[in-house]
Design a protein around this nucleic acid. Structure first.
Length: 219
DNA sequence: TTGTGTTTTACGACCTCC
DNA sequence: GGAGGTCGTAAAACACAA
């Protein structure tokens, strides 16, 4: 804010404090005809200048509240967002403002507060959503990993079954041997690999990776 | 200096509550 | 019906990059 503006504001504040009963150019003019519906209104500044309500020199400035006035209004707003008539009048006389200005300030302040609250809620929801997406990705990849393990295990079972079958058909003696040893589990020469997540994968067989086309719908 | 985007002040229309 | 609320918007004031 430049010096001239500060002086103007100070002068206006003084005027409103010295003559609280005198309408400033911003105070609604009594007896204005009520428009039908949502008519584009003529700005107060223009209207007042045209009517010579500013003293005839065409000068008008929308009055910005002083820092002290805003500070006091903020303190009151923190107290209570609603403004009962008594408090409005008291605040207005304390701050040298028109009660209407105080009411308007509270209306606008409530609107800003609501916007802020909506923005905060939006950003919280956005963060929560992002976290859920990350968790979903993690779970998807875990599901994929478990499916790989399942596929490998089933494949091993299949190979074991085939080997047992071929052994038994080629050698009746070995069939007996195998049957005789059914109580003890077979221990095959599988590699013990790292599944990538630090855990040991007993069925880890890297050469199968290229055969995972069937899994593509899940990827 | 000027164009442009943002904030602040103010108001009209409409809604709700007592 | 009046008082006081929200909503949408105009326009002045302000900030700031070019």
């Amino acid at each position: 804010m430049n010096n001239q503006n500060v002086v103007d504001d100070h002068n206006l504040l003084l005027i409103s404090q010295l003559y609280p009963n005198v309408d400033t150019p911003l105070v609604p003019q009594q007896g204005e005809a009520k428009p039908a519906r949502r008519r584009r209104r003529k700005s107060k500044s223009v209207a007042v200048a045209e009517e010579g309500g500013d003293g005839g020199n065409g000068w008008f400035r929308k009055r910005k509240l002083s820092d002290e006035q805003v500070r006091m209004l903020e303190v009151n707003f923190e107290d209570d967002h609603k403004l009962e008539s008594e408090r409005k009048d008291r605040l207005a006389s304390e701050l040298g403002l028109d009660p209407r200005q105080v009411a308007v300030w509270f209306q606008n302040r409530r609107a800003r507060w609501k916007n802020k609250r909506l923005e905060d809620e939006y950003s919280k929801l956005k963060n929560a959503h992002e976290n859920v997406v990350v968790e979903k990705c993690r779970l998807d990849s875990e599901v994929l990993h478990l499916k790989e393990q399942l596929y490998d295990a089933e494949r091993e079972i299949q190979q074991l079954a085939q080997r047992v079958e071929s052994t038994s058909s080629n050698s009746p003696i070995s069939t007996v041997t195998v049957e005789a040893n059914q109580t003890t589990p077979f221990v095959w020469d599988y590699e013990v690999g790292d599944a990538g997540d630090g855990s040991e994968n007993l069925f880890y067989l890297p050469e199968y990776i290229d055969e995972f086309d069937w899994m593509s719908p899940f990827m």
